[in-house]
Computed example of a mutant assay.
Amino acid sequence: MEKVLVVGLGNVGSLVATLLQRSGFEVSGADARPVEALSFPSEVFDISDSAALGNALEGCQGVVSCLPYNFNLSVAQAAFERGVHYFDLTEDVPTTKAIIEMATDAKSVLAPQCGLAPGYIGIVGGDLARQFDSVRSIELRVGALPRNPKGNFGYSVTWSAVGVINEYLNDCEVISSGKRALVPPLDALETIDINDVQLEAFTTSGGLGTMCDTWDEKVETLD
């Protein structure tokens, strides 16, 4: 049975680890604090402790980082050095570029941006676009909408607030009028109506992942 380490056992990390376990993987977890009521073994250590991280990776074939983006590079480096497959959920563009560059000499898979957006939304959008002979525009809209909205904004923070702030502060890469461009975050505000519920949509950093690389000079619009 292949063994996978999941680092960062918050709401998302605990779910990822549980789903991997249910899929037949041997799972272990790690976090900076004790996490109760898990169905798999876990340990507590500071992710900046390279020796502890290295020990946790012993015998693992894969590691999934569900940490805030600023911790991902050190986990990717540890996986790279040990030939362990690496996955993360980061939205951070500089971190992603550094891991992609690292991957050119890796003996294992180093795959950043495997979350909802970036990640799943790009897979769905790309697959749909490839079913057409030609594509003029790819416009992706995604949001983690709470089942029971609360508060003035009707918002639910289910993942790292650091990641949300990162998405809302940094420039966003798009394709506009056939050319790659950087636009401000929280820009291009639009209203979307779903089942008589009005929602706001706007640009956020990193959500397209590497789609601008894939669709450069192939579409007029990608956002």
Results as ranks from 00 to 15, higher is better:
residue 8 G to W: 12
residue 96 T to I: 05
residue 216 D to H: 01
residue 196 D to M: 09
residue 28 S to A: 11
residue 16 V to C: 04
residue 95 T to I: 15
residue 59 G to L: 02
residue 133 D to W: 03
residue 148 N to E: 15
residue 155 Y to D: 12
residue 171 D to Q: 15
residue 133 D to P: 07
residue 67 L to S: 01
residue 140 L to G: 02
residue 52 A to P: 10
residue 109 V to Y: 15
residue 161 A to R: 13
residue 220 E to L: 09
residue 137 S to R: 15
residue 156 S to I: 02
residue 216 D to P: 00
residue 181 A to N: 12
residue 44 V to D: 06
residue 202 F to C: 02
residue 86 Y to C: 01
residue 164 V to S: 04
residue 217 E to C: 08
residue 197 V to Y: 01
residue 134 S to V: 09
residue 70 N to P: 03
residue 57 L to M: 03
residue 135 V to Q: 03
residue 134 S to L: 08
residue 181 A to Y: 05
residue 204 T to Y: 09
residue 49 D to Y: 07
residue 120 Y to S: 14
residue 186 L to W: 06
residue 103 A to P: 05
residue 208 L to K: 00
residue 206 G to R: 10
residue 223 D to M: 13
residue 89 L to G: 02
residue 35 V to S: 11
residue 45 F to A: 00
residue 131 Q to D: 03
residue 38 L to S: 01
residue 160 S to M: 07
residue 106 A to T: 02
residue 163 G to M: 08
residue 140 L to H: 06
residue 132 F to G: 00
residue 119 G to W: 12
residue 183 V to C: 05
residue 78 A to V: 02
residue 17 A to Q: 10
residue 94 P to E: 07
residue 76 A to S: 11
residue 77 Q to D: 08
residue 97 K to W: 06
residue 27 V to W: 08
residue 181 A to D: 15
residue 200 E to H: 07
residue 168 Y to M: 15
residue 8 G to E: 12
residue 149 P to V: 04
residue 84 V to P: 03
residue 122 G to E: 11
residue 176 S to Y: 14
residue 75 V to M: 00
residue 85 H to S: 13
residue 169 L to K: 14
residue 113 Q to G: 00
residue 55 N to I: 13
residue 110 L to Y: 09
residue 12 V to Y: 03
residue 161 A to T: 13
residue 100 I to V: 12
residue 124 V to H: 03
residue 128 L to V: 13
residue 219 V to I: 09
residue 7 V to Y: 07
residue 116 L to N: 15
residue 112 P to T: 08
residue 1 M to W: 02
residue 93 V to Q: 06
residue 152 N to E: 14
residue 18 T to M: 09
residue 20 L to F: 06
residue 63 V to T: 01
residue 2 E to Q: 15
residue 70 N to G: 01
residue 55 N to G: 08
residue 29 G to T: 07
residue 118 P to E: 11
residue 60 C to M: 06
residue 104 T to D: 12
residue 197 V to K: 11
residue 70 N to V: 10
residue 10 G to V: 08
residue 73 L to F: 10
residue 50 S to M: 10
residue 193 D to F: 06
residue 42 S to H: 14
residue 102 M to C: 06
residue 23 S to G: 10
residue 187 D to Q: 08
residue 184 P to N: 04
residue 119 G to D: 12
residue 158 T to P: 00
residue 114 C to I: 09
residue 129 A to G: 02
residue 204 T to R: 15
residue 103 A to E: 13
residue 52 A to V: 12
residue 130 R to Q: 11
residue 89 L to S: 06
residue 85 H to N: 15
residue 217 E to Y: 12
residue 102 M to R: 10
residue 188 A to L: 11
residue 220 E to H: 10
residue 19 L to Y: 09
residue 159 W to S: 14
residue 183 V to P: 05
residue 154 G to E: 03
residue 55 N to C: 08
residue 194 I to W: 09
residue 154 G to N: 04
residue 32 A to N: 04
residue 4 V to H: 05
residue 170 N to Y: 13
residue 35 V to C: 12
residue 207 G to V: 04
residue 119 G to C: 07
residue 66 C to N: 11
residue 185 P to E: 04
residue 204 T to Q: 13
residue 109 V to S: 13
residue 63 V to W: 04
residue 48 S to T: 14
residue 175 I to Q: 06
residue 21 Q to G: 10
residue 199 L to F: 14
residue 60 C to V: 02
